[in-house]
Amino acid sequence: MTTEGADGAPVRLVRGPGLLLVWLYGVMSVGAVSRSVYQIATEFDRAPLAYALSAVAAAVYAFITYTLVRGGETARKAALLCCAAELVGVLTVGTWTLADPSAFPDATVWSDYGMGYLFIPVLLPVTGILWLRKSRR
C-alpha cells in the first residue's frame, strides 16, 4: 500500500480513527466559525486582537476539515502542514494569553491552550499529525 490504493484510488483519510478526527475538526469548525462571525459582526471593537485570532483559528479548522474529507495525497500533505500551523498557533496564542492577559479583554478559541474547549484545540493537532503520518504508509 503506497500513497494510493491498489486500484489507484486516492487515499481515504476519513476511515477508522480518521472519522473521529474529522468529526472533532468539524465541530471545532462550526464552533469557531460561528463564534468569530458573531463576535466580529457585533462587538469587534471590544477585543479586536482576540476576535481576529479566533477568525484565523476558524479558517484553519475549516480548511483542515475540508482537506480531511477530500482525501488524497496532496490533501494529506496540506492537512499535515495546517495541523503543524495549528499546533504552533495554539501554543503561541496560549502562551501569549497567559503572559499578557491585558492584550485580551475577551477570550479567543486558543486562549490558555484551548482550556475553554476542554483542551481539544491542543490535543487535536497532535492526534491529527499522528494520524496523517500513519496514513502515508
Binding site: 476519513v14 476511515r15 472519522l19 473521529l20 474529522v22 472533532l24
Partner: peptide
C-alpha cells in the same frame, strides 16, 4: 450534534463509528 455523528457512523461500520457517536 448527535444526528450528525450518527450519520457519520453509518459510513464507518467499525468501533470508530461508535467512538464518534460517543464523542458527539
Amino acid at each position: 450534534a448527535v444526528p450528525a455523528a450518527g450519520f457519520l457512523s453509518l459510513s464507518e461500520r467499525t468501533r470508530w463509528g461508535s467512538v464518534t457517536v460517543a464523542a458527539g
